[in-house]
Design a protein around this nucleic acid. Structure first.
Lengths: 334, 334
DNA sequence: TTGAAAGCGCTAACAT
DNA sequence: ATGTTAGCGCTTTCAA
């Protein structure tokens, strides 16, 4: 592989001149420009980004941490954020942390080791203290990790309320929801949808049962398993609320047991990924604006890398209702 | 940020000694070991991987190119391959090429620019010639890209035959399949499933209609749209074959039009992702061994990076049948 | 067992 | 307008 110095030598100029030509910094006469171009072609020269990066103390890489890539919401988030980062000149490194617990820690370490310039984390396993000690570019998805780390989130409280109102307006009297594990030390913003869902239900005098999900499980086999367990119990309920994949598995299990959706049980799902259109009936769902959230996350991490600092920055984006056939009414009004 | 030299100075030793200590190469006396450790802690030292990589001419990054991250098969592939690469000491860079056509080219360029050490490509858009010119570590998924580039693939021919036999044994007489675009210059191995499906059907005197998919479209909205278009036509058919997502959308559209699965129309899907368990009835499907394929791809790219070379290497893994309720019989026997 | 020195390939300040 | 030089932070001979 030819180096910049090889090019300089062949062109009969100094290394600095070639560098200036490549980066369009400083003057290079047209005459030498041609000589350099010529040499570059002859040697099939490509600049070594590794050397350039060492000088500039940057890698151009951003790590995106998620519990699972196959979980539809995260898959879509990754797709969007990768596009946004690409447009801003960064490459996306991904890490699916479900399998290896230490992976999250390792990726944070990569910040210090100059392997990545920034981290966008959608993972909620490590102790917050660890994050508080790191004063490097981190952006969190749906989680407060200390005042220095900006957060991007949907308006989950409104989402929980909307989900509840749809089921209430559809005439439900006894509902169940899959709720995120309550064992995490600090409440994540996304817990609010379940808290609010419960609150609104109780406020309307409706019986609500919470099924607590295992901690940090976002894989299909898990949802499939608990859907199988829960479906028989749902014969005594007329409303159900869960994340898209959970809702879809529960719906198919219920139908397998002979229940009709929405006649016997009505279902509202959270996220609004492509899953919700795949079933019959389609799922009525609360849609997170994932494109917007990905763009926000990309903006924040890039700004943070460029030196901007934020204090208690929190971006909250509105959710919307998507009407499907899994509920009778699709109104969220009081 | 403290550097290795800072540590050396504080410990009162030479830079080389610290380096040897860090890499456990060469001798370091216990006494100086302690002094170095002490200095490292005091300075909160972390090695700069960028500098180390410049010396070693490696980045530890591997790019994985897919048309779409949300397409369930690719999402699962990414998840698996990321895990496999992580275990082998590599980070996974992803690129979803559907949005930007030039992205594929740019990522190949990153090989030369020392941004990544290798590329695993599941994308089929660029001209083969471009690949033939690059003599750097590349591994292809489901595509022959010249004799130097190893290929990993499922036994798609057997997959096509199995799919056909299930529908035949279930009593179908008039079937349709979604088939990959025929416009690509070189046949990808995955086209074989559709060719074989058609061949077996014709061999058994069964009417087969091919619906040609648009080129390089793997997004949900596209499948949703064509499912909507095709479903009314399917009233005249009793069998259908497509990739998971296509099959699921078609099934829900058919049910919406009042058709019963499997009574009116039977469906077999290809890939066997989590999607196939999400519907009611579940989809009978041909399952690709994605975990195995990801492990193969990881093995090959790492070996290639380590200098091994392959000539016309092709790994073909067997597919299996997963029984679902979308067909009456699930036998693949003649 | 250890230190000094020469690079990995590129950039930028400083002369000229 | 251009060449020279001194690094970026680490590794690795080579001599001591």
């Amino acid at each position: 592989m030819a180096t910049l110095r090889d090019v300089a030598k062949l062109a009969g100029v100094g290394a600095g001149t070639v560098s200036r030509f490549l980066n369009e910094s400083g003057y290079v006469s047209d005459d030498t420009k041609l000589k350099i171009q010529d040499a570059m072609v002859k040697l099939d020269y490509t600049p070594n980004e590794l050397a350039r990066n060492l000088y500039h103390h940057r890698t151009g890489n951003i790590a995106v941490l998620v519990p699972s890539v196959t979980f539809p919401y995260f898959a879509r988030f990754i797709e969007c954020v990768e596009g946004e980062l690409y447009e801003r000149g960064f490459k996306t490194m991904i890490c699916s942390t479900a399998k290896q617990q230490n992976a999250e820690m390792e990726y944070l370490d990569m910040l210090k080791r100059h392997i990545v310039d920034g981290v966008i984390t959608g993972v909620h396993t490590l102790d917050d203290d660890i994050y508080r000690k790191i004063h490097l570019p981190i952006v969190a998805l749906d989680r407060y990790l200390g005042e220095e780390i900006p957060v991007v989130t949907s308006d989950h409280k409104d989402g929980g309320r909307k989900a509840a109102m749809v089921l209430i307006n559809s005439g439900c009297h006894r509902v169940m929801q899959f709720r995120g594990s309550q064992k995490v030390k600090v409440a994540s913003p996304y817990h609010e949808r379940h808290n609010e869902f419960e609150r609104v239900m109780k406020e309307h005098g409706i019986l609500i049962e919470n099924y607590n999900l295992a901690w940090n499980h976002h894989d299909s086999p898990y949802y499939k398993k608990i859907a199988y367990e829960v479906a028989p119990i749902l014969k005594d309920y007329d409303g159900f609320f869960a994340v898209d994949e959970g809702a879809a598995y529960v719906m198919s299990e219920c139908e397998r047991l002979g229940m009709k959706v929405p006649d016997d049980i009505q279902i509202v799902s959270y996220d609004g990924t492509f899953i919700t259109d795949l079933t019959e009936p389609r799922l009525t769902s609360i849609v997170q604006p994932v494109e917007q959230i990905a763009a926000d996350a990309a903006d924040l991490i890039v700004q943070r890398i460029q030196g901007m600092s934020f204090l208690n920055k929190k971006i909250v984006r509105p959710v919307t209702l998507k009407a499907g056939g899994s509920t009778i009414s699709c109104s969220t009004e009081e």
